[in-house]
């Protein structure tokens, strides 16, 4: 073990840090964009049967494609990874924000209207809070996938935990594979744990249906 740390310790810790920031930065930007976009799209629910399939189709594009294409355009810089992951992460959040909001029952919206709320107040006080479980589910999906696709940053030589896995796979070095895979798995678990905590903090217990 100590041998391992002496050998890979530095490489591992820098890989973890890089990986972590890739995920955090991409997810933060993606969330802001997707949340706003989702709200805007929800203002035109008549297009729902048009908007949703389009989002869903885009969602099927694997993260590797975004990374690859941006790599060709943008070159081997960290922003390539961040932008690619951001674009990828937008879709699940966008879809869930949009679906969450348009699924808020008319009854609540009408009750809110009847109480004299303005459209903006209805959005902020009723629609978004009621869509929150769905939005957070989207955030969770995006985050888990982003941790997963961030592994591919190594594919274009940009570090992260993928670097170890990658190097391990190509040199048949199991220790290296494990050294990359286990921290990546743990990081994914920690992120999803963090989101669960966020969910608990934001959504009153009575509203949480324990499926996600």
């Amino acid at each position: 073990m100590s041998h391992f740390i002496a050998l890979y310790g530095k490489r591992l810790s820098s890989a973890i840090i890089t990986h972590f920031w890739y995920v955090v930065i991409s997810i933060t930007i993606a969330f802001i964009i997707a949340f706003i976009l989702g709200i805007l799209l929800s203002r035109m629910p008549r297009r729902a049967n048009l908007i949703l399939p389009v989002i869903s189709v885009f969602q099927t594009i694997p993260g590797i494609v975004f990374i690859g294409l941006l790599f060709l355009y943008n070159g081997m810089v960290p922003s390539t990874v961040v932008i690619a992951l951001t674009i990828y992460a937008i879709f699940p959040i966008l879809k869930n924000t949009y679906v969450g909001i348009i699924n808020v029952s008319e009854d609540f919206k009408e009750a809110a209207k009847g109480c004299g709320m303005s459209p903006f107040q209805i959005l902020m006080k009723v629609e978004v809070p009621l869509a929150l479980p769905s939005i957070i589910t989207g955030l969770r999906i995006s985050t888990v996938y982003t941790v997963s696709w961030a592994v591919l940053a190594a594919m274009i030589g940009l570090g992260g935990l993928g670097e170890l896995i990658y190097a391990g796979v190509s040199s048949n070095n199991n220790t290296l594979i494990i050294a990359g895979a286990i921290p990546a798995a743990i990081m994914a678990l920690l992120f999803s744990l963090a989101i669960d905590l966020l969910r608990k903090a934001l959504i009153p217990k009575q509203l949480r249906r324990d499926n996600k």
Partner: peptide, 17 residues
């Protein structure tokens, strides 16, 4: 649920071992 949370390449790497 945990399995699904795992990064795909990490999971594949471990299986590959």
């Amino acid at each position: 649920e945990v399995l699904q949370t795992m990064p795909a390449l990490a999971l594949l790497g471990i299986i590959m071992v």
